[in-house]
């Protein structure tokens, strides 16, 4: 018997009698203003949040911190020429190492934890939101869902190769519980709620 068969046999022999899958109760968020709640939580975990109406407004805000000499990339065509929107190739992923700012579109946000759902096809490459020094995520303002249960209801059985909830800048508190932003990934995260 190989290990696979051996493990499966041992597990089926030892697992308890089948109990039913529980009904997941309907959980609700107390707060009613989802944008306000999302903003409050996102800021508390170190994100910056702006409500904007256009891509021009996003560029205007970002251009306060990012100038012509910075390497800015995006998969969002509307952001050219502010950002380099040239399609990225997987074999060149290591060359993203000097990206100062990456701007990606997210599908929706989650009010209870300030997270944004981002999938591979809107990133360009999977490593983009991690390797950049700073990250900006654009979310439709009306896309905020209350809780993680609502988030997965929204994702449903969507097909993706890779997807990630991103909540704030990369961080660590491994040294004496002192919070430091910018562990391995972006040092800052700015979320634009557009609409």
């Amino acid at each position: 018997m190989n290990s696979r068969e051996q493990i499966l046999a041992a597990v089926s022999k030892n697992q308890p009698a089948l109990t039913p899958m529980p009904e997941v109760p309907f959980f609700q968020l107390e707060a009613t203003d989802l944008v306000e709640k999302f903003t409050q939580v996102a800021v508390s975990i170190g994100s910056g949040v702006f409500q904007v109406e256009s891509y021009e407004e996003i560029q205007e805000i970002l251009s306060n911190d990012f100038k012509i000499h910075h390497r800015i990339i995006s998969h969002v065509p509307e952001l050219a020429p502010f950002a380099d929107t040239t399609p990225l190739e997987d074999r060149h992923r290591h060359q993203l190492e000097n990206v100062d700012l990456a701007i990606v579109k997210g599908h929706f946000g989650v009010a209870e934890n300030g997270a944004s759902w981002v999938t591979e096809e809107v990133m360009g490459l999977r490593v983009v939101p991690f390797i950049c020094q700073h990250l900006a995520i654009i979310l439709p303002k009306d896309s905020i869902v209350p809780l993680m249960h609502d988030a997965y209801a929204r994702i449903g059985s969507a097909e993706y190769g890779y997807g990630v909830f991103i909540a704030g800048p990369s961080k660590t508190a491994d040294i004496e519980q002192s919070l430091v932003l910018g562990a391995h990934g972006p040092r800052t995260l700015t979320v634009f709620l557009m609409g």
């Binding site: 934890n113 997270a115 190769g161 990630v164 909830f165 909540a167 704030g168 990369s170 961080k171």
Partner: peptide, 11 residues
């Protein structure tokens, strides 16, 4: 924390 910074889904 309300959630980790990254919850990555590898499919």
């Amino acid at each position: 924390q309300p959630i980790t910074t990254y919850s990555s889904h590898f499919k």
